[in-house]
Design a binder for these strands. Structure first.
Lengths: 219, 219
DNA sequence: CCTACCGATCGGTAGG
DNA sequence: CCTACCGATCGGTAGG
């Protein structure tokens, strides 16, 4: 919206290939340069930290010149925020899918397993740098941005509460629900620091270990 | 040792006030300037991150001019390393004291509680910024420094293993010992992100919750 | 430890 | 999006 290069409103043809030709046909596929910047930023922010990454690093990784990221993003800070917001939305989306059609109270242990697995997938999946950046570069945000993101985080974490409450009521979870949620999510989030897809336990084994560590399961 | 300003060896008087007078009597108490730099660096590295903190910030916080930190430390990197090493040594020391005179296998649950409490104390105690820096600024170290610190971390984490093994043998810990250690330490380390001494649970309540979350305790 | 300074790098912008 | 550029800041050093 508000794009000064947009065709006039009367022109509603669905064809998109008209207008100024792009450099090569498979690159420059319209708005995907923004995506390239986001991905490059996520990877670099994760590896080197926000302050340890220059906008030039990001531009180079996305195949651009040093000033070009600022055509797509107002500031380096806006880039960081966009990465984190994308991360949170993907996490919420995957969490929602994981619980689809499940009544948490009916089989709370199964719901718990799905929540843990979804969390690991979004955290440890190949190329999933967005959520780790969101977890570990929190500090670099402005207060206003932090507040907006906090709403998404509250939404995400709130989904755990009824599941944990049901497990607590059944005696499968012994610690207080709120502290349990904080400690459990901490244990999961910390896996980013040590988990290695190429060796050691798989995500499924990890999920299993977490279930047995936190809950009193039968057998 | 190796201090070029030290008095000659033959002079063994315990008096320390001789020689070039210091600016004021309560400041400049010989080698405590180095400590002031370390403390200031720890606090700032934790709040703003390593890359987000300038050596000028640190100098100002320690009451020095911009170039002076380099009189005490060879580089900004050396300062970071010194902070982390001090953090690890304090953690190991407190851990050792916490288990003093305890045979882990005899009362594994009690040993576990002491390990958790010691960990929280070193992590969440007022002004204890050294260990959090060590946990969250790992990335900024050189490979050689990381390797040296890794030895200390291995020593620290190794203490947990026999305790967890004993708990596992008794059936009080259900998940595999190694994954348990990783997940548990993650849960504890993450508390740095949310724990607030001024509200919510106390360290003792937190320790209690962790015990009940991870172990199958009687009653 | 301070003063004065250097080369390098950084986020961001104007103008096309 | 690129080119050319600016002001600011940074880690570090020489010389005292």
């Amino acid at each position: 919206m508000d794009n000064p290069f947009a065709d006039s409103v009367t022109d509603s043809t669905p064809k998109r290939a008209r207008g100024r030709p792009r450099k090569t046909l498979d690159e420059r596929d319209d708005g995907n340069r923004r995506q390239a910047l986001l991905s490059a930023a996520a990877r670099l922010f994760r590896r080197q930290g926000f302050d340890g990454t220059s906008t030039r690093d990001i531009a180079t990784a996305a195949g651009m010149q040093s000033g070009s990221p600022f055509y797509h993003f107002k500031s380096k800070d806006a880039l960081l925020y966009a990465v984190m917001e994308a991360g949170m939305h993907s996490a919420i989306e995957r969490q929602t899918k994981a619980l689809q059609g499940k009544a948490p109270a009916a089989d709370a242990a199964e719901a718990m397993r799905r929540l843990i697995k979804a969390h690991f997938d979004v955290l440890l999946g190949p190329g999933n740098d967005f959520v780790p950046v969101m977890l570990y570069e929190h500090r670099a945000l402005s207060a206003a941005e932090r507040a907006t993101l906090a709403e998404l985080q509250v939404r995400y974490e709130a989904v755990w509460t009824p599941v944990l409450q049901a497990l607590h009521d059944k005696g499968q979870l012994q610690a207080p629900v709120k502290l349990s949620r904080l400690l459990i999510l901490g244990a999961l989030n910390w896996t980013v620091q040590w988990f290695d897809r190429k060796k050691g336990a798989s995500v499924d084994e990890l999920t299993d270990a977490a279930m047995r560590l936190f809950l009193r399961l039968p057998n």
